[in-house]
Amino acid sequence: MIPGAFTYHRPKSIDEAAALLTSLGEEARPLAGGHSLIPMMKLRMATPEHLVDLAGIPELKGVCQNGGDIIIGAMTTQAELIASELLAAQVPILRETSLVIADPQIRYCGTLGGNVANGDPGNDMPAVMMTLDARYTIVGEKGRRVIPSREFYQGAYYTALEPGEFLVSVTIPALPDGHGFAYEKMKRKVGDYATAAAAVVLTKKDGVIATCALALTNVGDTALFAEEAAQILIGSRLDAASLARAAAAAEAIAAPATDGRGTAAYRTSIAGVMVARAVRRAFERA
């Protein structure tokens, strides 16, 4: 449980960080809260030669509103997401999700940027970002670019980030007033990653589901955007049959591994149960 040797860098600005990460290349990794990266380094599953700590860059922190958009700096911690009144009012699913991530100690250090950029299918925020249609602002050698969250994840620990690039902020487009939302997560205990989890954001019109976005956590190589399940629900009044069909559609795209949380069959079934429960709760809230 002792990491290999590495050199520690602490840039003071986004430009300095970009220059460092570009020049150090593949042997360098950004360091945010360290609560995914450092455990991997202690197991020597990650052996970066350079750590570029983003904690000294003030612009990477904080939550603000720009027109309808909510912009969250990559280095905003999960505890800060929970405390933000702006988020509680505008994007309450972030608070609900943050509260089921790890435990308070980890949430004081762990950041939103680290959580979404990590690429671990066990992280809870990627699925939520997909349901919110969030966009990631990336900085690299070639300047800034924006990647939709739904296109960011390519495989376990593989994302659209190129070597030298890092995430600066997350932009969440305005949500309609009175939207319903829920994040349902099955876990073995506090501090555990999901056995399966489901995020949903929906709107209702005259008792009928008008829009719906659904995504799943930890039942595949990446968070899974459950488009078909959402389509089944749109136009329904949430009768038992359409809910069951939506759950089945979600189960159909789930491909979890058998692990200590259960067999693949169990975790697939739980994905369906989480979808049904999340949708029911979101529907009541809308």
Partner: peptide, 24 residues
């Protein structure tokens, strides 16, 4: 403490090995 058929020891960390917290 679980072993797979090849004799690999599974879940030998506090992520998997269940030690309840005050919440559970």
């Amino acid at each position: 403490i679980r072993y797979d058929a090849a004799g690999n020891v599974m879940g030998a960390s506090f992520m998997d090995f269940f030690v309840p917290t005050a919440v559970e």
